[in-house]
Each structure stands twice: as C-alpha cells, then as structure tokens.
Design a protein around this nucleic acid. Structure first.
Length: 1015
RNA sequence: GCAGAUGUAGCUCAGUUGGCAGAGCAUUCGGCUGAUAACCGGAAGGCCGCAGGUUCAACCCCUGCCAUCUGCACCA
C-alpha cells in the first residue's frame, strides 16, 4: 500500500534499485522526425524519383492491366501557375495515383496549349518596344518567336507542376505546337472539310477601322462616348389588329380586317449608320405594346399629328418626350407577332425587301422603344436573330448577311444611296466618326422616317491599342455547321444531334454538369473556326477564285492526294510549311488544272479547335493511352467548371464530328478557388494566394492535403487558416505514423502471427476496422470523393489508433517480453495498419508517404517507392462482424470509465489512470450484453488502469454515470499495491520476485528475459 | 438582367426514408512526462443564411427573399 498515496506515488521510479528500466523496454525507436521540413525535403524526393525513373517503373508495373485514361486538359503556356492550376493538377494526380494503385494502368501525359492570341500579343509587345512592325517581319520568323515564348513558359510551368508532386510523362508531354500535333490538327480540320460541314460564311466581329483588323473581346476596352440617337419609323406593310379598345371599336371600323396601314413600328438606335444594313426588327413577348396616335405636338418637329405608332407601353412616355409630342393617345393593345412586315425607311430607293418582325428574348423595355432594329452584319445579337430565322430571310430574298461597310470604314459600292462612287465613311483613319451618321440622319428626315433624335453618353468599345472606336462588321469566316446532316462512320445526323445523343451517355460528376453543357450545345450557333491571326494551325484549304468552292472536299477527286501532301509537309516542317511561299506548288501541283485558279486560305484555326483535337493527337497516338477497341477515347476529362463552354465542348464537337462519339466516358468538374472570405482572387483586390509561396513555406504535401480535404466540386475558400487546418491534420497523421515507425523498429517478419484466429480480440477488431476501411476507401477513391478518404483516415488515426488502440497497447508493446504472444500480435497488426495507411494516403500525401516508406525500409524497400505499390489486399478473414459488435460495446463502457477517472483527476485524487482500479457496475439485464462483451478480456488494459473489476449488480450510491449510457455505473477505486518501476502499473504483486523487488511479476519476468539475453 | 450552384460550430466537412444537431481540427481547462514543439481526457462553442408554409414533428419537403460564386448576356 505504501506507494499509492495519490500523486506522489509515481515519483520514485527506479529509485529502489537505481536502475533505469528504460533499456529493458521496447520503446519506440525512430529517426523519423516529428517536424516534417517539407519544403526542404520534397525536392529530394523529386530528384530520387527522377533517378530511379519512377515514371518508367510505373509503366512497367501497369503493363497488361486495364487502362484508365485521364486525359489532361492543356493549360495555356503564358505565365506562372496559380492556385487554380495547382488544384486542377493535384486532383488529377490523386486520381492517377489512386487508379494505378487500384489495379489500373493509369498513365498521365501532361500537355500545353501553345497557339493563340495571348502569346501573339506578348510577342507583339516586344516588337513595339523595339519599334518594330509585326507586318514587316516574315510570318514564320514571327511564329518562331511565339514558339520560343511558349517554350519558355512550358519549361517554367513544368518545373512548377513537378514541384507539386505531379507524376507523369514530363519528359514527353504533349504540346499543341509540336509538328506532329499541328499535322494532326490540320488533318482533323480536313475531315470536316471532307464531310461537308465546313463552310465559309460571315459573322459580325469587332473591327478596328484604324488597324484594319478584327479584334477579340480581350483586345477591346470600353470608354464613354457620346453617340447620336435616333427614333425611326418603319411603316407597317402587312399585319392585323386584333385587340383594340372600346373607343375605336365604337368608331365602327371593320376590326377583323383592319390593317395597320397608317401605323409605324418605331425603333431606336445609337448607330444610324447601320440603318442601310437593317433587315428586321426584334420584339419581346414579355413586353406589352400599344398602338398610339399622335394627338397633338408641342412644336414643329418630326412627329406629325394623326400618325400612329407602335411602342412598348413602358417606353411610350419617353418617346413622347423625345419627339416633343404634346398628347399621345393610346388606341389599344398590340401583339407584335400580329404584325408581319414593315417596309424599310428607304423603301423605293433600293431597300425594297420586307422588314419582318421576330421575337428575341434579349429585347427589354428599359431603353428605346421596345423594338430593336436588326442589322445582321453589325451586331452579335442581330446576327443571332438572323441565324435563327435564316430560312425566312432567304424566302424574303435575303440570302446572306448584307455586307455594307468595308474594312476601310466606307460603305461598299453596292450599298444604295450611301455607297457608289462617293461612298460615305463611318469611321475615318483618325479614329473619328465621319460623315456616315449625319448623312444617314439627313436622308431619313428626307424620307420622313425620323421620329426624333438626340444624344447619348454610353460605354462604347474601343481598340485597346489605338484607342479608336471599333464597329461591328461582318467578315468572311469559316464555320462548322452544327445542323447539317453528316455521316461519320455508322452514325448519321447533324453534329448537334450526335453531340446531344452522346451527352446522354456521358457520366457527369457532379451531375449538374450535364444540364449545363447540354443547354449550351442545344443552343449554340455554328462553330466559327477561323481567326485572322498568325500564331496557330492554318485552315489548310484552297478556295477557287471567285467562288466559295474549297478543297479538299468530298467532290474533289484528288482530295486524298492533297491531304496526303499536306500531311507530309506538316510532318516535316510543322504548320510553318503552310506559310512558305511555295506551299501551293508543293502540295497542289498536278492535282488541279491550273494552280492560279486556287487561292490559299491564310486564316488560322481557333485555339479551341487545337485543344478540341488533343484526344486525336495525344490519346489515340500513344500506345500507353490506347484503350480497348470500341471504348471511347478517354475515361475521364477533368477541368474547372468553366470548361463546359470550353474544352469539354470543343472536344465533344470535334470528336462527334470526326468519330461520331464523345471522346470521354466521364466529365468531372471542380469549382474555383476563392480567397479566405469567399471572394474571387484578383490582382486588384490583392488577395491572390501563390501556390509557389505555399510550397516554399509549408510544402506541397500541405497543399495536396488541402486539395484532398475540400469539397472541390464547389468553390473553395483558401487562405492562411485553410493552410493551418491542413497543417494540423498533417501533423496528426504524421505523428500517428511516426509512432508506428517507432514501434515497428521492433517488428520481426519471422515472428509474425500468421493466423488471425491466434490473435487477441483487440487485434482482430483492428483488422476488422481495416477491412471496413479498405472497402470505403476504395469506394471513395472510385467516386473521386477524396475529402471522404481524408476524413475517414484522419478520423481513424485520431479516434481508433491514437486515442484507443495505441493508447491501450502501449503497455503490451513496451513492457511485455520480446516473445510475448500479445506483443507479437500487436506488432503484426501494426505492420498491417502501416501497410494500409501508407498506401491509402500516398495518392494524396505523395511526398510524405514516400518519406515514411523509406524511413522504415530504406535501401531494403521493396518496392523502391511507395508509389509502386497497390492498395493492399485485405483478406476476408479480417472481417468479423461479431467482434466488431462486441468491441463497440466495450468502447461504450470504456467511455463511462474514462469519464469517471476524469472526475478523480479533477479532484486531484489521481493523475495517471494507472493509479486507479475502477469497479464497473452493470445494473440491469439491459446491459447484460455489455457485461458479456468483456468476457475473456483484460478490462484493466482496455481502461488503461492497473486493475479493474466488473460486477453484474446494483451500484452503491454516489457513483459515476454518463447520461447517455443507462444502467452502467463506475466506482473509481484506487489501485491496490505498489507501483511497478518498470511498467508504472500499481499492483499487489510488486516485489514478489526477490531478484526484482520493485517490479511486478510480469515485469520481473520480462526483465529477467532481457537480462539473460544481454548478460 | 438571365441561368445554375452553394449557404450547418472559428476552420474543413458529415447529417441516411422528415424523429433530441455530429466529427476532426482550432479554443479553453486538466492529466501524463517512455509518441514529448508529442500523447490522453473534460468543457465551451450552433436562431442549420433570412422569412413564411406543409406536418404531431423540418437542417431535411414547398414558396419567397438575402448573400456569395460560376456561366451567359451586357445591349439597340
């Protein structure tokens, strides 16, 4: 009893003999540091993986397995990587690694998008600094500079991606600017030429008259500008009033047949110069319109008393004001769909086509008249209206988008009134609006078409470079028709239909992506492929002068030869070949009667076509990525959700148009990374988090763990706190594994407990847990639910291992004799836990699990890298539902005991739980099962007390209970006996062995065994 | 403006067919000192975005609103 008087009883370890028993214990022994020092260590792993050629070894290991093809969407090669890249690549890497470890051959071939405008800009910028004119440099010299620029950033990004721990074919990535890629891209384009869906049409683009070039949205900036505004009358030609008010009704008119003969539809515009291009008027069904009569006017103006106008009701007042109308009488409701056609203001002067009314959902009644004038050649919306009603336009004799303004800003010669020999000018070379607007307004006044005019200050697009205003102008472009029936292999239908059908087959993760892309494909216009630029893959076509006939095409007999020639030229020189002067001679000579009849197309392809082709020049071309015949090209495409409009769609259309099916089985999207407050990261907000900085400060594995822990399908917040959370989780996992490494230092393969049945139940319970985990981890990886993998494993580490199993087994592991069966079983199980956890975590913690693996095995590691492993096969013999049930009961009781001990601690009666010997009362048959669960178990071990007793009887008063565990009570008695100097347990048998007077019998025996071995 | 998504503890996330709001981490208090810049335990912490509705009962179902994000349209 002597040494059990509360806290001080534990202060004399080793005193009686003076011996330090530590050497006789099997304490954890490891060099594996608690602090990771990831930023310093990770580059070493990267080097080692390169030296051992891990990538090649992974391929060897994967040979013969079913392939899992995650096809990389190419980032654009023009800057350092940002957090979005990091998220994207890490997700891909986790998938690739987990698939490889799940028994697939999962190769990752990273790629880059290299062509396109942004790179061209940068190079042009350089030129400008050097006062060079791009147009004076030979095209291929310019292209070479673009190529060099892209190459520079590819090298930078490659390093950065590798630093993130992304495993893949970095020595042989795909680049859209590789000659072979350029060759195949051109070849793919020619497939569209051959199936007839490629055509030359025209489309309004932003055009800078000063620079004589089309501009992309990104090359345009908006500046405030004053524009003239005009209200123009379009007299109604045909149409019917159906819904007049009583007032008119009583005037005795023939309602059913009353024509709008004396009424006009009024439009409003800020661009008078587009009136010659007008071909229609748009209205909205959501707007209420009325027929109005000018009853009286304020002063002599454009409005005439008695004339009738159709206007949106909400805007009638503003029109009244603008036109200086004193009284405007509403005569009745108008449904614009009852109005069939109007005549153009310049009818009879060369503008004799009908101006039809069309419904367009974008029309609003917050400005103007509720009617929008449609000039298909001078506005994006206008063009859409045109495209949507192409058939009707054609029936009216409007067979193509009217081209009224030339590249120089002058009206075209064939434009009545304003073209001809003395064409009017819209915008002059100084970037100012010229005489077109005033002349137009004057002509409208003369025609009696003007109702009112004014001025408006508004945002107007200007060229980024010249600061001159731009105009919308239709220019010839190359399109892929989405609604023309084509034949692709066995599939016949329109490109849109084929794509829509395929979308039904594709798996979307999350499912909402399906609606998103389906809606887009359903409503999209024809695909504009051409760009009037230099850095890209050209449209490898020749057009017969003066016609729209192009080759190669299905009805040109020598198409195959031509395509073959082009392919050969590209294989040798890349797309640069096209820009050489002799290319026509080189590929077309002998195939046509007269070379001079044919003109080379100089446009380049939209870069989205490039990337839309990656499946063809990457996945289909590499043996390591080829799936079995009959399967879609790739299993999975994974990008940010913005790619529904981008890569997912361009790839879908390209593949459906050439192969008749989607290039992917599944599409997985992730959200965007926002700052810690959920705001978009932007330079102006100064809230951009640089992944490279995080790597430098905390390590790539912290970033990887963060990626593995968040709901990436939604947008994610990211900031210091997120890093700290990830670091905390990392530390917990690291230390749990470190504890295993320390104990496994004593593990001996030869002394494994081979048979599960020979193990203590606690060990079998842990094996059962592993069996369960194996199932859920595999499922979660397969479902790409990494945060669940993370949560499951972190929870396992804290709740099952650290706080339960390891805590309980410390005594067994440290104190039992070397050959003690329980100890060997515990080590065996720990080895299994180690095997599982390191494998399960290595897709996410790619660096740290390698560090752990090498820390344990070093040179003897087999395999040489944790990443060459498979997820361990977990034998079904581990599954034991009965033991699981039983131990859930035991843990329930344990909670009550722990609670009781806590009270003792708070009251300062005990410090360590080993000073206690609790008595657990099972008071009722309700808890009989709980009581019986302890049969054959060392309850004291489980409670981590020195002694314990269980009683199936009513507890005395005043004992401890937990609210949610009925009929269990715990009396936290003090342990009887002396404290064993070796195990620190308080036991009555301490001192029974004369050779070891300060030890318990168990410890004396273990110490003796140790001493004999070491004497 | 239109469409979609999201909103649960300080953070990251669970929440089954409606049935007493959960976990890990962080915080705080305590214990241990043989996992030690570690480990164990206790506690505190929530108008489940807001407001209605359905229901005996709503985080969950319905309606509206708010906030954030994404995409589209940014206009005549």
């Amino acid at each position: 009893m002597a040494k059990t008087d509360g806290k001080n009883g534990s202060r004399d370890n080793g005193e009686e003999t003076g011996r330090d028993w530590r050497e006789t214990l099997f304490l954890p022994k490891t060099d594996f540091p608690m602090r990771a020092g990831l930023p310093n260590k990770e580059p070493g792993h990267i080097e080692r993986w390169a030296e051992m050629n891990l990538y090649q070894q992974l391929r060897e290991h994967g040979k013969g397995r079913e392939k899992f093809v995650l096809h990389d969407g190419p980032p654009y090669a023009n800057g350092n990587i940002h957090i979005g890249h990091a998220l994207n690549k890490i997700l891909k890497d986790i998938i690739i690694r987990s698939k490889q470890m799940s028994g697939y051959d999962a190769n990752y071939v990273p790629g880059w998008d290299c062509h396109g405008l942004p790179i061209e800009w940068k190079v042009e910028e350089k030129y400008r600094k050097k006062k060079l004119d791009k147009d004076e440099v030979p095209v291929n010299e310019f292209r070479q500079e673009c190529r060099d620029f892209a190459k520079g950033w590819i090298d930078v990004q490659k390093q950065q991606f590798q630093r993130l721990g992304i495993e893949g074919d970095w020595d042989n990535p795909y680049l859209t600017m590789n000659f072979e890629a350029e060759r195949i891209i051109a070849d793919e384009l020619m497939k569209f030429a051959m199936n007839g869906s490629l055509y030359q049409g025209s489309k309004p683009v932003m055009w800078s008259v000063v620079e004589r070039t089309a501009l992309a949205e990104a090359e345009v900036e908006y500046q405030v500008k004053a524009s003239p505004t005009i209200w123009v009358k379009f007299p109604i030609q045909t149409g019917r009033i159906k819904n007049l008010t009583h007032e008119i009704n009583t005037a005795g008119q023939d309602l059913d047949n009353m024509m709008y003969s004396d009424a006009s539809v009024v439009i409003w515009t800020t661009t008078p110069w587009t009136i010659p291009a007008n071909r229609a008027i748009a209205f909205s069904k959501r707007i209420n319109y009325g027929l109005y009569e000018v009853a009286s006017v304020e002063e002599e103006g454009f409005a005439k008393v008695g004339e009738k106008l159709v206007l949106a009701d909400a805007l009638a007042e503003s029109v009244q004001k603008a036109a200086k109308i004193e009284e405007l009488k509403r005569l009745g409701d108008v449904d614009p769909s009852d109005i069939e056609t109007c005549s153009h203001p310049f009818v009879g002067q060369g503008y004799d086509f009908p101006v039809r009314l069309y419904e367009a959902n974008y029309v609003t009644d917050d400005a103007g008249t509720g009617f929008v004038h449609i000039a298909p050649g001078h506005g994006a919306d206008d063009y859409i209206v045109y495209m949507a009603n192409q058939r009707q336009f054609a029936a009216d004799g409007i067979t193509e988008v009217p081209l009224t303004v030339g590249a120089d800003g002058y009206y075209m010669p064939d434009v009545p009134l304003f073209g001809g020999d003395d064409p009017k000018l819209v915008i002059n070379q100084k970037g100012k609006f010229d005489n077109a607007n005033p002349v137009l307004i004057e002509a409208m006044i003369e025609a009696g078409a003007l109702l009112a005019q004014g001025k408006l200050k508004h945002d107007y697009p200007h060229s980024w470079r010249s600061k001159a205003p731009v105009i919308f102008r239709n220019t010839p472009q190359w399109f892929v028709a989405v609604d023309k029936t084509i034949e692709v292999g066995n599939t016949k239908g329109t490109l849109r239909d084929i794509a829509m059908n395929e979308l039904k087959e594709v798996q979307f993760i999350p499912e909402t992506g399906r609606n998103r892309i389906t809606a887009m494909v359903e409503g999209r216009p024809d695909w504009v492929l051409s760009r009037q630029r230099a850095w890209g893959v050209p449209l490898t076509l020749f057009v017969k002068k003066g016609t729209t006939k192009y080759i190669p095409s299905a009805n040109f007999a020598n198409s195959d030869k031509l395509m073959n020639n082009i392919n050969q030229a590209f294989a040798k020189d890349g797309a640069d070949a096209w820009f050489e002067d002799d290319i026509k001679e080189r590929v077309l000579a002998g195939l046509v009667d007269n070379l001079d009849d044919w003109e080379k197309v100089t446009d380049i392809l939209d870069v989205w076509f490039d990337s839309g082709c990656t499946h063809s020049f990457v996945v289909e071309q590499r043996e390591s990525l080829k799936r079995e015949a009959g399967k879609r090209t790739a299993n999975l495409y994974l990008e940010g959700s913005d790619q529904h409009r981008g890569w997912f769609q361009s790839s879908l259309l390209e593949s459906c148009g050439t192969r008749g099916r989607a290039p992917y089985d599944a599409v997985l999207t992730h959200g965007f990374t926002l700052d810690k407050n959920g705001r978009k990261m932007s330079k102006s907000l100064n809230n951009v988090v640089d992944p490279l900085k995080i790597i430098k400060q905390s390590g790539a594995d912290i970033l990887r763990l963060w990626v593995g822990s968040v709901d990436y399908q939604d947008d994610q917040k990211f900031g210091q706190e997120a890093i700290r959370t990830a670091s905390d989780a990392y530390r917990k996992i690291r230390n749990t594994i470190r504890f295993m490494l320390g104990n496994l230092a004593h593990y001996d393969e030869a002394r494994r407990v081979g048979n599960v049945a020979d193990m203590p139940e606690l060990e079998r319970y842990m094996l059962h847990r592993l069996h369960n985990l194996d199932k859920s981890i595999r499922e979660d990886y397969a479902a790409y639910d990494f945060k669940k993998v993370f949560a499951t494993l972190l929870n396992f580490c804290t709740t099952d291992l650290s706080a339960f199993y390891f805590d309980i087994r410390k005594d067994t592991l440290y104190c039992e004799a070397e050959d003690n069966a329980d100890r060997l079983a515990a080590l065996t199980v720990m080895d299994e836990i180690f095997n599982c956890i390191t494998a399960w975590l290595s897709p996410i913690l790619a660096f740290s699990m390698e560090e752990v693996w090498l820390s344990r095995y070093d040179e003897a590691a087999n395999p040489k890298s944790v990443h060459l492993r498979q997820f361990p096969d977990v034998p079904d013999t581990w599954h034991d539902i009965e033991i699981a049930k039983k131990w859930r009961r035991i843990r329930k009781v344990r909670r009550v005991v722990t609670g009781a001990l806590e009270v003792e601690r708070r009251e300062k009666r005990i410090g360590s739980s080993l000073e206690s010997a609790p008595v657990v009362y099972f008071e009722n048959v309700n808890v009989q099962e709980l009581f019986e669960a302890f049969e054959g178990q060392e309850a004291a071990d489980i409670f981590i007390t020195s002694q314990a007793s269980l009683k199936m009887e009513k507890a005395p008063g005043g004992v401890f209970r937990l609210d949610d565990v009925a009929d269990i009570a715990v009396l936290p008695d003090m342990a009887q006996g002396k404290k064993c100097a070796r195990s620190w347990k308080v036991l009555p048998d301490v001192g029974s062995d004369a050779d070891y007077p300060d030890l318990s019998i168990r410890d004396a025996a273990a110490a003796r065994a140790y001493d004999q071995k070491h004497s």
